[in-house]
Every structure is written in structure tokens, then in C-alpha cells.
Design a protein around this nucleic acid. Structure first.
Lengths: 236, 236
DNA sequence: GCCGATCCTCACGGACCCCTAACGCCTCCT
DNA sequence: AGGAGGCGTTAGGGGTCCGTGAGGATCGGC
């Protein structure tokens, strides 16, 4: 669980960083709006804690910029208490709004509530790719072949992000745009070369016969598709 | 958008009901915890506005009961401002917590935020062409024949664009001009040859008997028509 | 400061999709 | 009945996209 902490108040940022780290969260810090947008795109946070009163880019614009490509939960912190600002932030795409000063345990509870709503995909589920068993939470892949010989497959972080998208959308077509935005950030939506490379890596590591993919299928001109079961293709 | 309003305060309930109805929400009201649980199960609300201080069943138990089977957003209203109660409600499964008295426009904004987070799901509109099932979002066409053997049909990007137009205009006549400009752009409105080719492709891949089209019908001199159901031709 | 792993760049061969062209059949008009 | 136009079908070429390999750049750990 990675949290992007965007706040220009040194004291508050240090306090939050310590508290969040103690709860097991990984914290990435930004000091202004531009940095917040950049890190939201490249650091892959699972939640964003955003102070509205930061320099360089207005807080509302940060929300709108992030919402243009991502659905990551955004929790706004602000010293302003007037409801007009709350309404603007929420309607721009924020998911929650907490006014300073706030009780730390309430903030943590609201973070848990937001985290709960996104991880609802039953993460304990084990996915199967042929004879391989994938555990997304533990980041492990084990093989249970006939010999009882247990072998494990190692994936790099980028490969995991890509595989996660495939596993969570079984049978669905994933366009190049969607895959590139999710894995490499919205500013690399045209670098199709990345995809070719990493899909090839996944196939080499996970497909029984990498040259004849059974699970990671190419849809020419559109994108890729993860096909968990065996389905015969008809129609020529 | 249906909202379950669970509050035992007559005055507040009336005010909220009027305000919500004016915004286009459908309101279902409950006066105590037991009724709230019952309506949450049977009225299928899209969001629950829950007052914690209701008789019969404790508010926290209402949250836990609903969360036992449903992920519907729960927005808690409460007069208590101590953070311990907020933490308990949020950790029990509530998605947001507003303390009374509150600004009405803020509450409405928070309702919109919660509604936004759930609206994206379950839009897998499935179309049927004979024994085939088409999912436009996932770009899949599946058929389960009598043997239970699952087969899939693959379409090219251009074929998908054309099929999408047909499916979204069932029974309606689509002129060549309209089809050509939608699929190939307004500069190819005269290249009728494209259409002949790709309609033939769709028929070959989707029609049970391509030489005798049942779904993709030709309207001579005008264009094509997609007929979803089995229609008996009457009249001379 | 060295080393390994990971990520990205670049180029080439091949597959697939889209479009062009031509031919046979049908319907409608004259 | 003859001719014309529209529609369906087939085959083939050009161009774009995809797969693959090697090599350099960058980051973190020891």
C-alpha cells in the first residue's frame, strides 16, 4: 500500500510520514502541485493525500489532472472550512475531504475506508495460468507439475504490474492505451514498444510455448487479451 | 439512483427527502435500524444515508449487517463529533461520515462522490446475435453450443466498428452514407465497395448461413439493417 | 567504486489487416 | 427480351503492426 503525500507544510508532512510508515504504509512525498502530478503518474500510489494549498499548481487542477487518467482514491486535506471549497474539490474528483486540524485516528480510518473500496477484488484469490499458480498479494508464482517438483518464477516489478492488469481483467480486451497508461503513466501512451517487450517477457516466463501463446493473446491493431481457460477459435 | 434514507428525526428526514428528490434521486425511507436493514436488502438502494442514533438496532450493527452481503456505499450522519465513533463507523464498513449539523451542499457533493465511485461497474451490455453473445466493452464474441464447448469469434478493428453501429441501432435502417462516414470517416462516403466487403465479412463470421442472412439484411439502394430477433417476413 | 538486475532503445524479419480490382449474379428499368 | 446498375464474392498486393534479438543506460546493494 503506497501513499502519495502531497503537502508543503514541513511539520505536518514529517508527522504524517512517521505515522503512516508506522502503520505499514509506504510513503512518497511531494512538495508542490507539479511534483504531485508527476509522482501520481510515475510512482503508482494506491492513494493520494493532497493538500489543496500548495504552490505552483492549484490543488483543484491537481485533482483534475490525476482524474484525467486514474481512478486512484484522492483524500483532500485543507485548512479551509467553507463548504464551497469542499464541494469544488469533491466534484473535481476527490473522494474525501478532511479539514485541518484533524484527529489522526480519524484520518487513518478514512484512509482505511478508501483503501478498502479499491482492494475489493478478493486479493486472497489465487490465479491460475496453465499449471502455474499466481498469488498477487504475495507476489509469488509456483508451478505444480506432475513430478511434484516445485519451481518458482521470478518477475520484475514492471512485469508484475502488467500481469496484475491481465489477471484482473480476464477475457477482456485491454487496449494499448489502457495498458500503457496504467503501467507506465499517462505520458507514455504512445510508446508501444514497451508493451511488445514486456508482453514477450511475460510469455517467455509464463507460457508453456512462448512462440504459440495460449493465455496472452494479441489482438492486432487493438491490444492484448488474457484468456484464462481453453477456448477454441472459430471463424476464419 | 435510489437512496435509502435511514433517520428517526422527522424534521431532518423530511428536509432531506425533499432536497434529494429535487436533485433527481429516488428516496426510500427507514425509521429505525431494523427497517433500514430490511430495506437495504429488499429495496436495492444505490447508496445508504444512515443516522447512527436510531432505535431498535445500533447503527454500527446496521453497517455490519449490510456489509455482510453488500458493497453499497454507506454515508453516516451523526451528531456525535468524537473521533472514536467516526473510527468505529468507518472501520465497520462505512464509506463516509458527516457530523450534524452539516451544510447541505457538502452532503450532496459527498453523495455525488460516492455515487461516482460505483457507477463505472457492471456496464457489460451483452448483445445477442442468434446463439452468439457479443460484449462490446470486452470485445468478445462467445458461443456455447449444445456440447457446452465454448468457442469464440475474432473480429478485426474495422469489423468491430461496423458491428458496433449495427448493434446500437437495432431494427433501424442504416444508410451507406451513415455507415461509411462513421467507420471510414466523412471523406470516404462514396466508397460503397468497402461496405460490401466488410458486411460480407460480418455475415461470414456471425451468420449461421452467410448466404442467407438473417440478421444483417440488405436494403437495396439504401443501405443495411440489423434485425436482432427472428422476424417472420409477411406480406407479398 | 564495483556489480548485478532492471529498464529502455534500435533494427530487422514476418504476420496480419486493409484496400484495390475484377468477375458473376440478381433486380429493375426500358 | 435486352441492357444497366447494384450487390456478393474472390484473389492479391501494399502498408502497418507485431515479435525477437542484441546492446546501452540507469538504479540500488554491497
Amino acid at each position: 500500500m503506497r501513499i502519495l503525500l502531497a503537502d508543503d507544510d514541513d511539520q505536518l508532512q514529517r508527522a504524517l510520514r512517521i505515522t503512516l510508515a508506522a502503520r505499514g504504509y509506504e510513503v512518497v512525498a511531494a512538495r508542490d502541485g507539479a511534483e504531485a502530478i508527476d509522482l501520481a503518474a510515475n510512482a503508482h500510489p494506491d492513494l493520494i493525500l493532497l493538500d489543496l494549498g500548495m504552490p505552483k499548481v492549484d490543488g483543484l487542477d491537481v485533482i483534475r489532472a490525476v482524474r484525467a487518467w486514474s481512478k486512484v482514491p484522492i483524500l483532500v486535506l485543507s485548512g479551509r472550512t467553507d463548504s464551497a471549497e469542499k464541494v469544488d474539490a469533491l466534484d473535481a474528483g476527490a473522494d474525501d475531504y478532511v479539514t485541518k486540524p484533524f484527529a489522526m485516528d480519524e484520518l487513518l480510518a478514512r484512509i482505511r475506508a478508501r483503501a478498502r473500496s479499491t482492494s475489493g477484488e478478493a486479493d486472497a484469490a489465487a490465479y491460475a495460468i496453465g499449471s502455474l499458480t499466481v498469488d498477487l498479494a504475495a507476489k509469488t508464482i509456483r508451478s505444480t507439475d506432475a513430478t511434484g517438483h516445485a519451481t518458482s518464477v521470478r518477475l520484475t516489478p514492471t512485469e508484475w504490474r502488467l500481469l496484475e492488469l491481465f489477471l484482473k481483467n480476464p477475457g477482456k480486451l485491454l487496449t494499448r492505451q489502457m495498458l500503457l497508461s496504467e503501467v507506465w503513466g499517462p505520458f507514455h501512451a504512445n510508446d508501444a514498444g514497451y508493451l511488445r517487450l514486456y508482453v514477450a517477457q511475460l510469455r517467455r516466463k509464463l507460457e508453456p510455448t512462448p512462440s504459440e501463446p495460449r493465455f496472452f493473446l494479441t489482438e492486432p491493431g487493438m491490444g492484448y487479451r488474457f484468456e484464462p481457460g481453453a477456448i477454441e477459435a472459430t471463424g476464419a
